[in-house]
């Protein structure tokens, strides 16, 4: 299987839109053609060859090495293949991901996985705010697929989340699952203030006691069988973020946000 290696030569002064660099887009292109791809950076367009050393053969797998937080929109709207990033990345990682797998060894900036449709996004470090959240004006955040964050996530995880699964291995910030419409978010660590704020539907799974908004009503402690289905679905996920399942199916179920008639649920494992 052929692999293309793009190694960042130096940290760019300002953000670079890397969305043109996806396996499907680069497949079959010559190194020269790849080097000539123009990447938007502020109000300039830079040839990819100026930013990256290019090696290997383009194919199903693209590896970006030496990445840094100035590289925005990595894997945005990517359709198929594997994108492996060594280092940190900037904002909008995997935005609108159509299919395929993205793995980032470091951390990511804001709005990772926004508008994502399917596929898998795995961030080994921590992510910024608005993971899987809707960008301004959009009515829906992430629309499907699976996001795994081994580290922490910022505020507004899954704001307006419409579908899909978000797993956070560490802590999540304030307003986790705010305005959530459907889907599942699981946080192994702690969450900040007001989880489930204005939540409409969907499931927020928390691994330990949390301070919930007063507008979530306690529906008691239950064994919920669907959690077994969830755990089985995640059995193949290679991350501690997916390992809350052995805690069992008994959860305390809180429903809200009743302030806006929501029927979302926050499930707190015992």
């Amino acid at each position: 299987m052929s692999r293309l290696l793009l190694t960042l030569k130096a940290v760019p002064a300002i953000g670079v839109d890397c969305s043109p660099l996806t396996p499907a887009r680069l497949a079959g292109m010559s190194s020269a053609a790849i080097a000539a791809i123009e990447l938007q950076s502020g109000n300039r367009r830079l040839p990819a060859g100026e930013l990256f050393d290019i090696a290997g053969e383009p194919g199903d797998t693209l590896v970006i090495r030496n990445a840094c937080s100035k590289l925005d929109r990595i894997g945005a709207c990517m359709n198929g293949g594997t994108l492996d990033v060594e280092g940190d990345v900037g904002a909008f990682l995997g935005a609108g991901l159509v299919s395929g797998t993205i793995r980032v060894s470091g951390g990511a900036g804001a709005f990772a996985a926004t508008g994502m449709l399917a596929g898998t996004l795995h961030v080994c470090g921590s992510v910024g705010d608005f993971l899987g959240a809707a960008i301004a004006g959009d009515k829906q955040g992430m629309l499907g697929g699976r996001v795994i964050v081994d580290g922490d996530a910022g505020d507004r995880v899954g704001d307006h989340l419409r579908r899909g699964i978000i797993l956070v291995g560490g802590n999540a910030g304030d307003y986790c699952a705010s305005r959530m419409l459907a889907g599942t978010i699981a946080v192994r660590g702690k969450v900040g203030a007001l989880p489930g704020y204005a939540m409409k539907r969907g499931t927020l799974l928390l691994a330990g006691a949390a301070e919930l908004p007063a507008t979530f009503n306690d529906c008691g402690s239950h064994e919920l069988m669907f959690l077994r289905l969830f755990a089985r679905h995640l059995a193949s996920v290679d991350s501690a973020a997916a390992s809350f399942a052995p805690r069992g199916e008994r959860v305390r179920r809180f429903v809200g946000d009743r302030a806006n008639g929501g029927l979302g649920e926050i499930l707190v494992t015992a």
């Binding site: 899909g164 499931t203 239950h222 064994e223 919920l224 069988m225 289905l229 969830f230 679905h233 029927l263």
Partner: peptide, 25 residues
């Protein structure tokens, strides 16, 4: 009656329907 919940795991969709002994999945 509106309290049902959909869960999509992979490409399988499940419904959770609240019933008197818990949930019918």
């Amino acid at each position: 009656d509106g309290y049902q919940i959909s869960k999509l795991f992979g490409n399988r969709r499940y419904w959770r329907v609240p019933v008197m002994d818990g949930e019918f999945v």
